Amino acid sequence: MVAFKGVWTQPFWKAVSGEYIAMLIFVLLGLGSTITWGANNSCQSADIVRISLCFGFSIVTMVHCFGHISGAHLNPAVTIAFVCTRKITLAKSVFYIMAQCLGAISGAGILFLITPPNLVGNFGMTMVNERLSLGHGLLTEILITFQLVFSISASCDPKYKNKYPAIAIGISVIIGHLFAINYTGASMNPARSLGPAVILWNWKSHWIYWVGPIVGAVCAAAAYDYIYCPDNALKEHLKEVLKKATQKKEKYAEVEDNRSQSGDDDLILKPGTIHVIDIDHDSKKGKDSASEILSTV
């Protein structure tokens, strides 16, 4: 039950509901940009620039609105990457991912209800180009999600000031779409692909849009936090843990990581000197807005 400490609080459920609402709006607007209203009321080829800008600007808006409420993950792959880098607990991430997926399905469902049937088309579903193999599609999703999450990690690093994370993240989404729409539909987000897949009940190659973004996100977050810009306090902590683990030879030594539970009341956990979003103390003033935003898409 220690893992669920801090879950049954009002601030946390405000954060979860924020993820749901933000994801609903993001998917509704993003998928809506893929629907073309032609002169003959028939589907035409989608405008790549329009779709890219809509997804990117939607992310900028949602990060700006919900960054201080929930961290504005808006992406199960980002949430899983933050679990791996100890920025959010596993128990809390489960509720985040559920809210994101439900929000995406709700947004896609609302759009489907208000769109004339003859204009629905493929409804913005992410599909691998017929000229590509599934392996190429998987690699594409890994690469574009890697650049997105690396951008998120860098722009939201509290050690560096005078940044505009919402804009940086939005631009990262835009360039990912401009590059990869013709390859895979440029998902970078399992929930974004889940919404239209559920509404149309089309699961063709859907696994690519979970495996690819998750692998790319975890690799990017780990590379930034542990290789390129590691936290000194975290490095010392890992050394202490490894030292204790090797003290007893040929015997199993259970090492208690006190640090991993020291911030269970926080919504987003960061080791060492990394800034923490504490939803139980949301009345604090003087917080750095850039460090409050932990993720998106």
Rank of each mutant, 00 (worst) to 15 (best):
A253I: 02
A222Y: 14
Q247T: 09
Q247D: 05
A253W: 01
L242A: 10
E250F: 15
D231P: 02
A220N: 05
T246W: 09
I214Q: 04
H237W: 12
P230S: 13
V215S: 12
N232F: 00
I214G: 08
H237L: 13
A217C: 02
L234N: 08
Y226L: 12
K243C: 07
K243L: 05
D225S: 10
K251S: 02
K251C: 04
L234R: 08
E236P: 08
A253D: 05
V241E: 04
C229A: 10
A223T: 14
V215T: 15
Y252S: 03
K248W: 00
C219F: 15
H237A: 05
L234K: 06
K249A: 11
E236K: 12
A221M: 10
L238H: 03
D231V: 13
V215I: 15
A217F: 01
K251N: 03
E240F: 12
K249V: 13
G216D: 08
A221S: 15
Y226H: 11
D231I: 15
D231F: 08
Y224R: 13
C229P: 00
K243A: 05
D225V: 03
K251V: 05
V241D: 02
N232L: 09
K244V: 13
T246M: 07
K249P: 01
L242V: 04
Q247F: 02
L242G: 10
V241G: 04
A245V: 04
K249E: 12
A221F: 09
C219A: 14
A222Q: 13
A233C: 00
K235F: 01
A217T: 13
K249F: 11
A245Y: 14
A233D: 14
H237S: 09
V218S: 00
K239D: 08
L234H: 07
K239W: 10
N232Y: 04
Y226G: 03
G216R: 06
V218M: 12
K235E: 09
Y224C: 11
P230D: 08
K248R: 09
A220Y: 06
C229F: 03
A222P: 05
H237D: 08
